[in-house]
Design a protein around this nucleic acid. Sequence first.
DNA 1: CGGCTCACGC
DNA 2: GACGTACGTGAGCCGT
Length: 876
Amino acid sequence: MSKKKLVLIDGNSIAYRAFFALPLLNNDKGIHTNAIYGFTTMLMKIMEEEKPTHVLVAFDAGKTTFRHETFTEYKGGRQKTPPELSEQFPFIRELLKAYGISHYELPNYEADDIIGTLSKKAEQDGFSVKVISGDKDLTQLASEHTTVMITKKGITDMEEYTPEHIREKWEIDVSQIIDMKGLMGDSSDNIPGVPGVGEKTAIKLLKQFSSIEQLLESIDEVSGKKLKEKLEENKEQAVMSKKLATIMTDAPVEITLEEVFYEGIVDEELQMLFKELGFQSLLEKFDFEGGALEELEELSFIVAHEITQEMLAHPSALYVEMLEENYMNGKIIGYGLSNQSGHYFIPTDIARESEGWQEWLRDKSKEKVVYDAKKSIVALKRQGLELNGVSFDSLLAAYIINPAQNHEDFASVGKEYGLSCVQSDEQVYGKGAKQAVPNLDALSEHVARKASMLWDLTEKLKTALKENHQDALFFDLELPLAFILGEMEYQGVKVDRTRLTSMGKELGGKLKELEEKIYELAGETFNINSPKQLGVILFEKLELPVIKKTKTGYSTSADVLEKLQSKHEIVKYILHYRQLGKLNSTYIEGLLKVIHEDSDKVHTRFNQALTQTGRLSSTDPNLQNIPIRLEEGRKIRQAFVPSKEGWVIFAADYSQIELRVLAHISGDDKLMEAFQQDEDVHTKTAMEVFSVSKDDVTSEMRRHAKAVNFGIVYGISDFGLSQSLNITRKEAGEFIERYLDTYPAVKEYMEDIVVEARDKGYVSTLLNRRRYIPELTSRNFNLRSFGERTAMNTPIQGSAADIIKQAMIDMAKRLEEENIEAKLLLQVHDELIFEAPQSEIEKLKTMVPDVMENAVELNVPLKVDFAFGPTWYDAK
DNA sequence: CGGCTCACGC
DNA sequence: GACGTACGTGAGCCGT
């Protein structure tokens, strides 16, 4: 028999936690549901992860408990439970019932005491126990057989407290937690403790005296006059506080462990409850027996056996359906079509045989609205079919309206706009290894539904774009750009396979040598690629000092290793091994894997609807992170070559585009001056910040100034800056302050934009791209700070993204107008990479900077540098 | 298969 | 004083 496992949940604590962690959600009947929702997600996660045999949720029963006899003010000063939360408790009990989970409460005792009592009992009966709560007090129950999970942030993110973890974290024994609490007190429970003693002091005292009782006996040995006095004055209070903080393990609990056996979910009840509460996402997530999900409204559609003229109406909604996400390799499995004549599913073989269909696709005058224009066009082009007349892309429109939404799945996008007649792709096709095309009936219905919903969605999106004044951003920027990106992807980049292979061989040899050297110095062989094994070697066997720890062990990151270089010879070999290993696995082997056999080209896909700032991203392969900073890595670029004989690679990049954007939007005189006079902005910043003349700027000063500029551009915090410069956080904070004093209008911009963002809920870029920042109203300091940095940074990064996108569109136009053969291949955030016949280089040398520099007009000039050569490496 | 750590670019 | 700190993609490891 498998081991018995008991999960004990502190019901009140989790409900409170969920209530305050989530915004006040309402269902359609006006009932608040946030605590119920949070409780449910927590429960789902726990049940899935722990798969317990027994479960109990304990609740507090009423206001007074035995603890009030000891201390009448216990839990005094606590705010009343908000009615918005109270009203949710009956539903939580219903939820538990539907889940087949028992709950229990005991007059005069708290949930803690029930949990404490049952956990001890269960331990004796051979259970392993998990306790779930939001209250750290419960950690006192941790033992060899009991793990206590405390919610960290939100409600599903938990920290596991085992006795070992407690020793590591607080450097005290589990048994001393109550002493710690007795000394510190707890303001939320109104436990007084000893005034002036916090966590730090409590731990220090306990390390010396081990318990409150022993401490009070040997009170003369306490160092620090003040502290001693306080302790003496509050002797009784400390002892009482400890008593209050102690969880009972022998409360008169009447429920038995047999009774809390987990029965399993009652599907119907849970489904009904979710429906009543309006938990759409959970209804889907849940694999209800029989799959009897919410019934979709009926849709009559036709599976086309031939293509008729009537079907080819316009405008039409066209959904090009593929199974694989990578449309460079995947196949089209059918088309959904929806227009005034009806809704259709068109199987690929029917489409392939129809001249009329292909002609219709090609016809510019036949308007089509699609979901993911670029994907549709490229996928068809790979089949030799042309798609023209795309007048709307609901993927891009939805992204523009709210980039934070997940746009992977069409059904979920529809749902956001109140449309729900399509199942999620995962429901229809499954996922992972189990992914497959279903039978024709299911497939055709799914795809026809998509086309139908696409039509309705388009109307809604057009309205929303207009309301937001984002029509221009969509019609003049993103949609035209999609066509250009499609061309770039289809075109691909030629890769010199032999070159890569030989670099790989060379790397392999060097890696072998390094590996042997490392094993020799370590005195044993191990997996250098495993941070865990490497940590053991460095910090246990070789006893190097531990500089940083991660959640799971020692950190072995590059910045840590750099600090250890002087301590042991092995470190530099490991750093080098890492560097070469990365090159080999990601850039040599990884790249070789995605080269198309027939053409020797790689065809990256640019995701145009993903980043929160408006930048593009690149996958399969990612060509936006090819090494450049270190020479060894930079050589990878030698493998990227023009696709034709006599052609060259031409690369043009914006110089300091983000800082120029910042100068523009802040209107800061000094910063604008730097660019108007085309000065080195980092040196200029160093001059201003350190108040020295140009000749007195040291390389150290410039490096610091550069890091601050970098930090401003990427919206990093003082902590981030301190990390990158290896200085203290305080110093980093001072740097930022001095920077802002130097550029007062920048400071003003930073302050104003946060206020504006809080008022409006979002920030905007130059071309009216939006990013909503709900974090700004968070009560959590970190989240709020993150929101503030986002508010400052997004207009800068996002506007830069707007500008280069505009430049790409202008560039494509110029290339076509002037009949230039050169082709745009890649965009890497602030640079454009072309391939071109040698004969066109002279022309490009003036045209490309001209177009890029004039994509938009700012209060400061934009500046573009360029270079060209036989490989990407040489275009520097 | 998913989470974690690490490393590359801007 | 704690909190956990730019955005992406991808590789390998490791526990499930």
